[in-house]
Amino acid sequence: MLNERIWVIIPAYNEQDNIFGVIKSLQEQTANIIVVNDASTDRTQEIVESLGVYLINHLVNRGQGAALQTGTEFAFKKGARIIVHFDADGQMQVEDIYRVTAPLLNQEAEIVFGSRFLDNKSKIPWTKKYLILKPAIWFNWFFTGIKLSDAHNGFRALSRKAAKNIKIEQDGMAHATEIIDQVRTNDLAYTEVPVEIVYVQYGQRFFSGFKILWDLVLSKIIRK
């Protein structure tokens, strides 16, 4: 069983096919599950309600970054000490939550990033790996100053301190880079651990990278 101070946040948008299985397997390890339903138009909400986990609903769709931030704020109200970001699409492995939270429990870091590239377990489609993910790693390094082996992995664990200091303002997928950027600006100790991602579908589409680029450039130009 997972440490009771750990809370798992699952941002979900139209995951009626996967959410049941994901929650069921998580429930074997913990009861601290928060699903943030980002205004799904399918039966996601219904399915989650039947499972008896914490469910927060966005009235209108805001994006995965926004859903994670909402879930994090709710987790704080529940007294969470460690926050885990976990995808609703069934690609992440529940056992990896132990790996991802270990450095936090040992107080070796404030934030832990899961990586597909530290071992060879994840079978990643060739085009995705070399045409999208590798360039993304360089781009993130250029943008944030931090070089991770896996730039765009949604599997993360944050200490309470890290989660409080990192305010996700990028509602869309650019939040991944934004989080890394804030790790640098807040000078948080970070580390990576290998996780296994199982690909059933391709994942994000090819051109979403350009949207992310646009969002990030815009955020740097527009000062708050």
Binding site: L55, L59, V60, A66, Q69, T70, K77, E169, I222
Partner: peptide, 26 residues
């Protein structure tokens, strides 16, 4: 664009507030 960005962020703030207050109640 700048205005739009602000509006989007404001909408998220409102949606979040509503979502969290409902979440607590339920």
């Amino acid at each position: 664009l700048v205005r739009l960005d602000k509006i989007e962020k404001d909408v998220t703030k409102v949606v979040r507030k509503i979502a969290l207050s409902k979440g607590e109640k339920e």
